[in-house]
Amino acid sequence: MPYPWLDEYLLSKMDVTKDYKEEWSATRYFVGGKMFAMQGGDKTGKPVFTMKLEPMYGDFLRRTHPDIVPGYHMNKVHWNSLYLDGVVPDDVVREMADQSYQIVLQALSRKIQKEIIG
């Protein structure tokens, strides 16, 4: 996998937890109990990492990088899948992870945000 740092990077963010959903064969990442990223496979088993992005940014990335596609088994407007055998630069993947975390964090209630951020 060309992004061996990604799991540790996501887990370093405040209040992030992960689990493994056996039925989906996927590792899921949560903030405040809401999923913001998932590592699994597409219909052929090819490994993908799926993250929630602002629609315009996701569309831009899909047009710019062939290894980023609409989210596999997710809402195609808000979720984007990154093929893990692709060649997307680390800084782009890091920005995707940061944005996904922030989108979900900001959608949580102010009370939960305060508990997480302090």
Rank of each mutant, 00 (worst) to 15 (best):
residue 84 L to I: 03
residue 97 A to R: 13
residue 11 L to D: 04
residue 71 G to S: 01
residue 87 V to W: 13
residue 89 P to W: 08
residue 9 Y to I: 01
residue 38 M to E: 11
residue 10 L to H: 00
residue 67 D to R: 03
residue 75 N to L: 01
residue 35 M to D: 01
residue 80 N to S: 12
residue 104 V to Y: 00
residue 24 W to Q: 03
residue 72 Y to H: 12
residue 20 Y to L: 08
residue 24 W to P: 04
residue 104 V to M: 00
residue 78 H to E: 13
residue 38 M to Y: 02
residue 19 D to L: 01
residue 60 F to E: 12
residue 64 T to R: 11
residue 35 M to N: 10
residue 72 Y to Q: 07
residue 97 A to K: 08
residue 94 R to T: 14
residue 77 V to G: 07
residue 34 K to R: 09
residue 16 V to P: 00
residue 117 I to M: 11
residue 81 S to P: 11
residue 9 Y to R: 12
residue 98 D to A: 06
residue 7 D to E: 13
residue 65 H to Y: 15
residue 69 V to A: 02
residue 67 D to G: 07
residue 59 D to V: 15
residue 27 T to D: 05
residue 114 K to R: 15
residue 54 E to Y: 11
residue 90 D to T: 09
residue 62 R to Y: 06
residue 104 V to N: 01
residue 11 L to P: 03
residue 108 L to K: 12
residue 21 K to M: 15
residue 50 T to I: 11
residue 8 E to F: 08
residue 88 V to Y: 02
residue 14 M to W: 08
residue 77 V to C: 05
residue 43 K to H: 13
residue 11 L to H: 06
residue 32 G to A: 09
residue 24 W to S: 02
residue 34 K to P: 07
residue 36 F to N: 01
residue 113 Q to M: 15
residue 54 E to I: 07
residue 98 D to V: 09
residue 44 T to I: 05
residue 90 D to H: 09
residue 16 V to L: 04
residue 29 Y to S: 08
residue 68 I to Y: 03
residue 63 R to V: 01
residue 26 A to G: 04
residue 16 V to M: 10
residue 18 K to A: 02
residue 108 L to S: 07
residue 60 F to N: 02
